[in-house]
Simulated scan of single mutants.
Amino acid sequence: MERILYIGTKNVSSWAFRAWLPLRELGIEFKEQVVDIRKPQRFDNLRRIGEISPAASVPVLVENQSIIFDSLAIMEYANDIGGGNLLPSDPLLRARARSFLSWQHAGLSGLCPRLSFESAFYPDKRQMTQEEQIDAERLFRCWEQELSLSGGPYLCGDLSLADLALVPTVIRIYSHRPQMRSWPLTHQWIKRLLARESVEEWMSEARNLPPIILDNYR
């Protein structure tokens, strides 16, 4: 069986990062194919991806003749074939995990739109704006409540797809050194996530790439 995951450049492709993480965490074998999505080659490369994927974007998981072309679908498929341990067995808790998954997949209601994943790798980071700080605190408050409710160490107790889906968002916010004193459970959760071997593997490669400075980062 051949299983290929097409991902984007690792200091850009947060959507692919989300799909890649559960595959790694569950020890599922796959071949990684990096598609350079930096400009100007981005458009030609994604056009080629469009030859195998209706969405013409990454990530794409190709397994034999089957194409899975959505990051959330790839995450859930990885969980299905990897034993199902990345979603809670309790129906209510599983629904809460899926709520976080869906919220992240929908863009977290547009929170922090200018704190891109790319900005986590900038050598000189600006301070967060007041609006971004308010947005981050809204997230911290939500995560703190969930961690208190579940008892930790992750959002639903054990590590789940909900935690993994939020990793790129955590990275882009935490790299800008937000004030964490009021959110001790969230702070420990963030550090625990960033210390995972799978996360560090991706990030170590991403840090070695030239940063991609976006025009709207100011």
Score class of each variant (00 low, 15 high):
residue 78 A to E: 05
residue 17 F to H: 10
residue 16 A to Q: 02
residue 169 T to S: 11
residue 31 K to H: 12
residue 135 D to Q: 15
residue 44 D to Q: 15
residue 166 L to S: 14
residue 136 A to Y: 02
residue 79 N to K: 03
residue 13 S to L: 08
residue 163 D to N: 04
residue 100 F to H: 08
residue 199 V to G: 06
residue 112 C to Q: 12
residue 121 F to A: 05
residue 173 I to N: 04
residue 206 A to W: 03
residue 212 I to E: 13
residue 81 I to P: 07
residue 125 K to E: 08
residue 194 L to Q: 08
residue 4 I to V: 15
residue 178 P to Y: 12
residue 134 I to Y: 07
residue 128 M to W: 01
residue 195 A to K: 10
residue 102 S to L: 14
residue 172 R to V: 08
residue 218 R to K: 10
residue 138 R to P: 00
residue 28 I to F: 08
residue 171 I to R: 15
residue 8 G to Q: 01
residue 166 L to Q: 12
residue 165 A to R: 05
residue 59 P to E: 01
residue 1 M to R: 10
residue 57 S to W: 00
residue 25 E to Y: 11
residue 65 Q to L: 12
residue 59 P to F: 07
residue 17 F to C: 01
residue 33 Q to L: 10
residue 72 L to I: 14
residue 50 G to T: 06
residue 47 R to Q: 13
residue 185 L to D: 04
residue 97 A to F: 04
residue 96 R to Y: 07
residue 212 I to T: 10
residue 20 W to Y: 15
residue 150 S to V: 04
residue 150 S to N: 01
residue 204 S to K: 11
residue 101 L to F: 09
residue 89 S to D: 15
residue 170 V to S: 08
residue 2 E to C: 02
residue 200 E to Q: 15
residue 38 R to M: 10
residue 174 Y to K: 06
residue 33 Q to F: 14
residue 42 R to I: 00
residue 38 R to G: 03
residue 157 G to L: 13
residue 148 S to K: 01
residue 173 I to A: 02
residue 104 Q to D: 06
residue 143 W to Q: 00
residue 5 L to M: 05
residue 96 R to N: 01
residue 73 A to C: 10
residue 210 P to C: 11
residue 152 G to Y: 03
residue 198 S to R: 02
residue 23 L to W: 03
